[in-house]
Each structure stands twice: as structure tokens, then as C-alpha cells.
């Protein structure tokens, strides 16, 4: 493995350990006795004693932390106060919904963003650029949950074209599943599309004035081939970078989008947990989000060095 990737792997591992410590200390920072928070309704002395023993709350901090990590590694996040189900089971049902929603949103954002970005760069100074730029600015500025609200109001309720809320698993009814998830995915994708568009446009403008593109033009390649084969290839890196950087925003966006459209995903589970003070669920959500962010960004870096060898070289030279 090249040295660059080794360094990145070490940084990711370190960040993961630090994030775990932060979440662990966060639970200890909860007001009052953690056993009380974890117990929920049943606050009998026996129940509290059982929880203290289970979580090792009577042990020194370092032992508690060790036990916490051990349990997390086994996928054991305790039992939800609200539902009484194991937190890991709840996550296993909720996660696929969120992953499907986010993946579809990224796909939509990439198609719209790269398309509009290329048009804006190629048609520089023409009305098409102004329209694309204007749409991107609006995409950056519009509150997406409000867009979702309007979509439900004016598309779902008024025309009945889309269901206003609810969800059908893909395995049960693929068409119905897409029907339920397409509108939320478009809404979630608009903000990302705006960011991808702006970056694609400036990357395209840079590469359109680069020497290799001039060479390609000079040797008689059609404009379509120049844009498609040479300039556009570079914008692939742009998309990969942005998806990595914007992952946090995407996760936050998914939480809101799910609450509006009533999708039973990770986000809705999180919000329900906050209002029910369902601490086992909250800490699992925070730890898993941080882990997902760190792992996905490491994968993005891996992918990066595959797409663009220069990054590998520059990283090793540093």
C-alpha cells in the first residue's frame, strides 16, 4: 500500500478512536445519573442496579470505556427506552431506507449538477449560463424541507401524482418503493446538485483553457469529443470530492427529508429518539454517523488516488 494511503488510514483510525471517546464522554455529560437516563420508565432500585452492573457504571471510567467499545464492536447498543427493542435491530430496519434515499439523491444531484455545470461552462456568457447559475444559487439558498413541504402541498396533495408520505420496502414492491422515494430523493438532491454544478462549472472552465484541451482541439477533435473525453473526465474528481465533503450535509438533509415525508429511516428514528429522551438510540446514532463519515471519506480518498494518480504522487512527496 502506498505511503499516502497508509497515512490516511492511520488518520482515519485515530479520528475514529477520538470520536468514540467524545461520544462516550457525551453520555457521561448527560444531566443526572446515567443509569436513570438509560432506565427509562422502570426506575425501581433493582432495575437501576441491573443497569449499573450491565454498563459497569460502578467501575472506573477506563473500564467503562473498554466495556463500551467492546459492546459497540459487537453491535450491541443496548435496548431502546421507547420501543424496548434492541437498538441494533431498529438500526437494521431503518438504515436501508436512508441509504436508498441518499444514494438516489446523490445520483440525481450528479446528473443534474454535472449537466448544468458543463452547459454553464461551455455556453459561457450566454443566457444558458445565467439560467444555470441562477438555478444553482437558488438551490443553495432554498430551505430543502420547505421545498419538500411545497412539493407535498402542490404535487402530492393537489395532483395525487405522488404519495404524500409513507414507505414500501423495495423487496415487497419495487415500483411502489420508487414512487414513494423519488420525490424525497429529488428534494434531498437539489442542494447537492447546486454545489456540484458550481464546482463542475469552475473545473470545466479551468480545463477548457488548459493546454491539453487546446491540443485536442488543434488536432481536429470535435468539440463534443473534447468536452466529453478530456474536460469532463476531470469533473469526475470534482463529484467524488464533493460527495465526500458534503456527506455531513447529506446526512443532516436526510434526517429532515425523512421527517417531512414520513419515511421510516435513520433520520426519523433519530428525531423520535431526541423527543423521547431515548439515550441508547441517540448515542448509537451519533457513533454510527461519525463512523460512517470517517469510513466513507477514507474510501473517497482511496477512490481519488485511483482516479487521479497525481494525488498519490503528491501525497507521497509530502
Amino acid at each position: 500500500m502506498p505511503r499516502y494511503l497508509l497515512t490516511r488510514a492511520w488518520h482515519s483510525a485515530l479520528t475514529l478512536v477520538l470520536a468514540t471517546i467524545v461520544v462516550f464522554l457525551g453520555i457521561r455529560a448527560l444531566p443526572g445519573d446515567p443509569a436513570l437516563s438509560l432506565a427509562g420508565e422502570d426506575r425501581s432500585p433493582e432495575a437501576l442496579a441491573a443497569i449499573r452492573a450491565e454498563y459497569g457504571l460502578d467501575q472506573p471510567m477506563i473500564v467503562q470505556f473498554g466495556r463500551y467499545v467492546e459492546r459497540a464492536l459487537h453491535g450491541d447498543f443496548g435496548t431502546s427506552i421507547r420501543t424496548g427493542l434492541p437498538v441494533s435491530d431498529m438500526i437494521r430496519t431503518a438504515l436501508p431506507v436512508t441509504i436508498e434515499l441518499s444514494a438516489l439523491a446523490i445520483l440525481i444531484a450528479t446528473v443534474l449538477g454535472v449537466g448544468a455545470g458543463v452547459v454553464a461552462a461551455v455556453r459561457r456568457g450566454r443566457p444558458a449560463e445565467w439560467v444555470a447559475n441562477g438555478l444553482a444559487l437558488i438551490g443553495l439558498s432554498v430551505p430543502h424541507f420547505w421545498l419538500g413541504l411545497l412539493a407535498i402541498l402542490y404535487l402530492s396533495v393537489a395532483t395525487g401524482l405522488f404519495p404524500a408520505s409513507g414507505f414500501v420496502p423495495f423487496t415487497e414492491d419495487p415500483i411502489g418503493n420508487l414512487h414513494h422515494i423519488i420525490l424525497p430523493a429529488v428534494i434531498l438532491g437539489t442542494g447537492l446538485a447546486a454545489i456540484i454544478m458550481r464546482q463542475t462549472r469552475s473545473a470545466m472552465l479551468d480545463s477548457l483553457s488548459a493546454d491539453y484541451v487546446r491540443t485536442a482541439k488543434a488536432k481536429g477533435l470535435s468539440p463534443r469529443a473534447v468536452i466529453g473525453r478530456h474536460a469532463l473526465r476531470n469533473s469526475l474528481i470534482v463529484v467524488v470530492t464533493i460527495v465526500g465533503l458534503q456527506l455531513g450535509g447529506l446526512i443532516s438533509g436526510a434526517v429532515v427529508t425523512e421527517s417531512i415525508f414520513g419515511l421510516p429511516g435513520f433520520g426519523k428514528m433519530t428525531i423520535d429518539a431526541v423527543f423521547q429522551r431515548d439515550y441508547p438510540v441517540i448515542q448509537a446514532v451519533i457513533l454510527l454517523t461519525a463512523t460512517a463519515y470517517i469510513v466513507i471519506n477514507f474510501l473517497v480518498d482511496l477512490l481519488y488516488s485511483v482516479i487521479d494518480p497525481r494525488i498519490r504522487v503528491a501525497g507521497e512527496a509530502a
Binding site: 488518520h11 482515519s12 485515530l14 479520528t15 477520538l18 470520536a19 467524545v22 457525551g26 455529560a29 448527560l30 444531566p31 456527506l247 455531513g248 450535509g249 446526512i251 443532516s252 434526517v255 429532515v256 433519530t270 428525531i271 431526541v274 429522551r277 439515550y279 441517540i282 446514532v285 451519533i286 454517523t289 461519525a290 463519515y293 470517517i294 471519506n297
Partner: peptide
Amino acid sequence: IGRFTDLLLAFPFLILAVGLAAI
């Protein structure tokens, strides 16, 4: 400081807000 930045990035604003609201 780079590692500190990485750590902060791992907690999206909504997740941070969820944590702060809980505490």
C-alpha cells in the same frame, strides 16, 4: 489541528445539535 478538524467533521451539524439537545 488537522486531526481536530477531522474529528469535528465527523459530526454533522444536525447530529451535533441532536447531541447538544440531549445534553
